[in-house]
Design a protein around this nucleic acid. Structure first.
Lengths: 188, 188
DNA sequence: ACGGCTAGTAAACAGGCGTATACTCCGTTG
DNA sequence: CAACGGAGTATACGCCTGTTTACTAGCCGT
């Protein structure tokens, strides 16, 4: 009945592998449920590891969250093909976010506001570097920051709505609408 | 040092007045900080009342939250002047939400996702009846629900962004942009 | 084969939470 | 004037949180 007994045999001792299991479990759970809701005990159970190891390997719950954020890739694929079709690419991504949570937990975690100030600043910084700034860099003309911010708002809002009202399958017309929305956001 | 000593003299015993103080304190705190972050002890302290009275008058923390939601007016002013200028009115309201939180705590509370399932459903229902449906009712043509949902998403996103990145003074150009955004959302 | 390093464990800690209970004290009424 | 009902109080309960401590036990170099 102990932590290791869920799998048949005992696991070999492997600091790095255990650390990785915890990190992966945290990735999934934080992404699904946000920072506050998830407890370190839930993470430890999902990782099939002991609670104390979370503290040992990541210092604290917030440290673990930071490690999760740091390990996540950015959305760079959305931005590497130039600014012309950017609204369309954003719209396609956003449409996918109407249907289901991101595979990439970064946005899942960032979607949920973290009340803890420490985590709030982490999430804030990550939102800026991973979403806001990449969009702003694609823009020309004045107010690039403001326009990027509005597009970011739509991103956050789509996720927030899906979480509150449930997923929704976007039609092709919805993608067109979203494209127009992002064009309106980003228009100089 | 007891609860009543913060004001100079003793307060007359008044069930209704105390209930109202608690309700008002909850309104403010829930609006500012969301459901989970606020504790019943914080509310009781702000209302200058005893913790147990929260339970006595509202049954539970969730019951108090429900009472707060129920007492809040809807956004009906936004919708009573017909659908023509609806995008513009929504844009002006959203622009105000870029600058500062709503005076009306209903959206402030709804902006924050409540992890507690009980409160989640309360917030969900309120979002539908107070925002989504009034918008949908103004729309003609197919997909009214979907289009209203997209506008709702922008609403939520604006608030989420302000909370994460701080307030921002919208320029007239921003209001125009937001108008275009809502037009794109609501376009049949 | 056997210490020693260390991954992993179990348990407890301190504190906060929502809630419930037993009580005091005041205003009103018979 | 005495007694009763109820507003308000103080406190404890049980639970759960993140974190830490003391311990066990397996791997590895010698």
């Amino acid at each position: 009945m102990d932590a290791q007994a869920t799998e048949a045999g005992a696991r070999p001792r492997d600091r790095e592998a255990t650390r990785e299991r915890i990190l992966q479990a945290a990735r999934t759970l934080f992404g699904e449920q946000g920072y506050e809701t998830v407890t370190v005990r839930m993470i430890a159970a999902a990782a099939d590891a002991n609670v104390a190891l979370v503290g040992r390997y990541f210092g604290s719950k917030a440290g673990l969250f930071a490690a999760v954020l740091q390990g996540e890739p950015t959305l760079s694929k959305l931005f590497e093909d130039g600014a012309d079709a950017l609204p369309r690419r954003l719209a396609e991504y956003a449409a996918e976010r109407m249907r289901r949570p991101p595979d990439n937990p970064i946005l899942r975690a960032l979607e949920r506001s973290a009340a803890h100030p420490e985590v709030r600043s982490l999430a804030r910084e990550r939102l800026i570097t991973a979403v806001l700034n990449p969009i702003a860099e694609q823009l020309h003309g004045p107010d690039a920051q403001v326009r990027a911010r509005m597009a970011t708002a739509v991103f956050l809002g789509i996720g927030a709505t899906r979480r509150r009202l449930g997923p929704q399958d976007p039609t092709p017309a919805d993608v067109d609408r979203l494209t127009a929305v992002f064009e309106a956001c980003l228009a100089g």
